[in-house]
Simulated scan of single mutants.
Amino acid sequence: MVQHGKYRALVAAAALALGAGPAAGACRLALAMGFDISRSVDATDYAIQRDGILAALAAPEVVRALLGSDDHVLLALYEWSGQGSQSIVVAWTAVRSQADIDRIAASIAAHTRGEDKLPTALGEALDFGADLLNRAGDCAARTLDISGDGRNNIGEEPEKVRKRRGLEGILVNGLAIGGHESGIAIYYRQRLISGRGAFVEVARVHADFPRAFRRKLERELTEQLLGTIETGENAG
């Protein structure tokens, strides 16, 4: 794993590589992020999660990674819990300026949480995220990131969704939150993530979510994206 102190160099390298191509102004990355709001996520956990996302979007390193190239990033966020319970928080938004980041943050801050007493349909969260990415349009890379604190306990298992969907051209990362179920990071590694270079970021407990989310987002926008550029292919 790249140390946090190297992220700035990676941001600069990614921006240089992405801005140098003939297709300046194209979409370099479609990044969809799904967040767990099932019954194991109480009001305090939810607030930590929301505030952690907002803090990451305000972090200078993340802002530079988002805006450091003429080629833009597309962002979308959704919440998920039980079967048929996924809700778009931020629809696909092209991030080309600080104003775009501010609009995304305002949508997150204003969002009202959905049903909070439902089980954990992780497989459906994966299926929904894949459909969402398939509606993003043309982008050089496509990444789905799903965070959660528990194993799938209703509906199709995530590994079965992976097999059924194929997920061609989609890199699936995870953010595993400990404290509710043991071995959740191992479960995410074995059952959820897919694609070359896919990884699981770990938050020991919900209180650790802001740090883990920021580190995960920086990695997706710099190290992981630069790897895609260097190999000249999507990680799928």
Rank of each mutant, 00 (worst) to 15 (best):
G174R: 00
E218F: 03
N153F: 12
V200Q: 03
S38T: 14
G232W: 01
S182A: 09
S69G: 05
I184V: 12
E156W: 02
T228P: 00
A17N: 09
F35C: 04
G150E: 04
E233C: 09
R219M: 12
A125S: 08
V172N: 03
E233I: 11
V95P: 01
G166D: 02
L31M: 04
A91N: 15
R162P: 02
L217R: 03
A212P: 01
L77Y: 13
G232L: 04
A203W: 07
R162K: 15
Y78L: 03
S87G: 04
Q224E: 12
I37F: 08
M33V: 14
I154L: 08
L77W: 09
G25V: 08
P119T: 04
G236Y: 11
L74D: 10
A20N: 15
N134P: 02
A43H: 10
V89H: 00
T120P: 07
I177H: 02
D149G: 15
H111V: 01
A26Y: 05
A9C: 01
A47T: 09
L16C: 08
I229M: 12
L226K: 07
P119M: 04
R191S: 04
V90S: 06
D149H: 10
C139F: 13
L225N: 01
E79P: 06
K160N: 08
G34R: 07
R151Q: 11
A14S: 12
A20F: 05
A24M: 06
Y188F: 15
A203R: 05
E157N: 07
R113Y: 03
V41Y: 00
S85C: 04
A106R: 14
S69K: 10
L29N: 02
G82L: 02
L132D: 04
R142D: 04
R196V: 15
E115K: 14
Y187D: 03
A13V: 02
D149M: 09
L221T: 00
I108V: 14
A14I: 02
V172A: 02
T228D: 13
L67V: 02
G148N: 07
I101L: 12
D36M: 09
I101T: 03
A56F: 08
L192E: 01
L144N: 03
N173H: 10
Q98I: 05
L226C: 06
I229R: 15
D116V: 13
V41K: 06
V2F: 15
Q190P: 07
L118Q: 15
G82C: 06
A17R: 14
H4R: 15
H206F: 08
L74S: 11
L57P: 01
D45G: 11
P158M: 00
A207Q: 12
Q224M: 13
Q190G: 07
I104L: 12
D102G: 13
D71L: 04
I177Q: 05
G5P: 07
A207R: 14
P158L: 00
T44K: 13
D45R: 15
S182Q: 10
A12P: 00
A24W: 06
I229A: 12
T231M: 11
A106H: 11
R214G: 11
D71K: 11
A17W: 06
A203Y: 10
